[in-house]
């Protein structure tokens, strides 16, 4: 049966996981660039692309944990409604910020 409180929690946890994974990935990019600096274009051919997979797996992992935490904490209809409202307002501005960040820290 659809629309049960459990379905609401799972739905919101999935949304949280997706958004958290996107944020973690971009934060990991920024961290990489701050720590190692911008790659030398003439050496970049030797880049084995490991960093990309590492960031992607890290983001998926931490996004999943964020989703699990959300599912655990969202134990009342009021909390679910509040978090849904916050995420609804925050999603698009967050994506714009992430886009700018990936431009500034390629």
């Amino acid at each position: 049966m659809k629309g049960t409180p459990e379905h609401r929690r799972v739905s919101l946890a999935t949304a949280t996981a997706g958004l958290a994974a996107a944020i973690v990935y971009v934060v990991a990019c920024i961290y990489d660039r701050i720590v190692s600096g911008l790659a030398d274009p003439f050496l970049i051919v030797r880049d084995v692309h490991f960093g990309y997979y590492h960031r992607a797996v890290l983001a998926a992992w931490l996004g999943g944990i964020a989703g699990l935490i959300a599912a655990r904490l969202l134990d009342s209809p009021e909390r679910v409604s509040w978090v849904t409202r916050v995420l609804t307002r925050a999603t698009l501005p967050t994506v714009v910020l992430l886009s700018v960040a990936t431009y500034l820290f390629p």
Binding site: G3, R8, S11, A21, A22
Partner: peptide, 24 residues
């Protein structure tokens, strides 16, 4: 990558909620 994880994150909130859960 951002596009893919947002897409995957949107699937269940689109499909699971019942008719009264328009907010999700």
């Amino acid at each position: 990558f951002v596009a893919v994880v947002l897409t995957l994150g949107a699937v269940l909130p689109s499909l699971l909620p019942g008719p009264e859960n328009a907010d999700l």
